[in-house]
């Protein structure tokens, strides 16, 4: 099904391209949101990813999966936009003890708010998610990429190494460091208000 869409899109069928990329719409946005930690930058990077994805589709050969091909574009786009934006934004260096200014998705504007009061369980779950999101945000950007790509996107370390243009050992090392760092932060209660 996806293969067929890819082939049609490669022949210049924009409707097929639209359908193909619509499948990755929210995932690419989420990925870039977690990478840039900023909703608007993530939007820009995601749109640019789809733009390049559609334009460059004719260069896609079935060497790896389409998904990892697309995520490689997204990764490069995210890095590019972060670099570019540093010229305009004064970016605070990552500080493990700083809880402020960490944007959390379900609090950011534009996301639908739940009109009914939340039960205690849901509140606790949301709070846990917020803490996780905050801890994740404080990881160095490349470690965070490995964690998100492996766990959230289900890509293999082999694929991650290709996406991030590094050795598989480097990816594995980043994962190990990330696990230790996350554990430390969660134990310290980082991300708690």
């Amino acid at each position: 099904m996806e293969k067929e869409l890819i082939q049609r899109a490669q022949k210049g069928n924009t409707i097929a391209a639209e359908q193909l990329y619509a499948r990755y719409h929210n995932r690419i946005f989420s990925y870039l949101w977690r990478m840039t930690q900023n909703r608007l930058l993530a939007e820009d990077a995601a749109q640019e990813t789809f733009f390049k994805g559609i334009k460059g589709l004719k260069n896609y050969r079935e060497k790896g999966t389409f998904k990892s091909w697309l995520f490689k574009i997204a990764y490069n786009e995210g890095l590019r936009i972060l670099k570019k934006e540093r010229k305009y934004f004064w970016q605070k260096p990552v500080n493990e003890n700083d809880n402020e200014n960490i944007e959390v998705p379900w609090q950011s504007d534009g996301s639908p708010m739940n009109p009914t009061p939340l039960s205690d369980d849901v509140m606790i779950e949301k709070e846990q998610q917020r803490a996780m999101e905050a801890a994740l945000a404080r990881l160095p950007v490349k470690e965070r990429q490995v964690v998100v790509l492996r766990i959230h996107e289900g890509l293999s370390f082999q694929e991650i190494s290709t996406i991030m243009n590094c050795s598989i050992n480097t990816s594995l090392g980043r994962m190990h460091n990330a696990v230790r760092r996350m554990k430390k932060m969660i134990n310290k209660g980082a991300g708690q208000p």
């Binding site: 924009t14 391209a17 639209e18 990329y21 619509a22 719409h25 929210n26 995932r27 946005f29 989420s30 949101w33 909703r39 993530a42 939007e43 995601a46 749109q47 640019e48 789809f50 733009f51 994805g53 559609i54 998705p105 379900w106 534009g110 996301s111 779950e125 846990q128 998610q129 996780m132 999101e133 994740l136 964690v147 998100v148 766990i151 959230h152 696990v179 996350m182 554990k183």
Partner: peptide, 24 residues
């Protein structure tokens, strides 16, 4: 860690970024 991260929600930008790209 995996089970915690997997539980994190997928986010919706609230607009069609693919369509914007196609239009370009």
């Amino acid at each position: 860690l995996a089970s915690d991260i997997q539980a994190l929600p997928e986010l919706d930008p609230g607009k069609n970024l693919v369509l914007n790209a196609v239009r370009q």
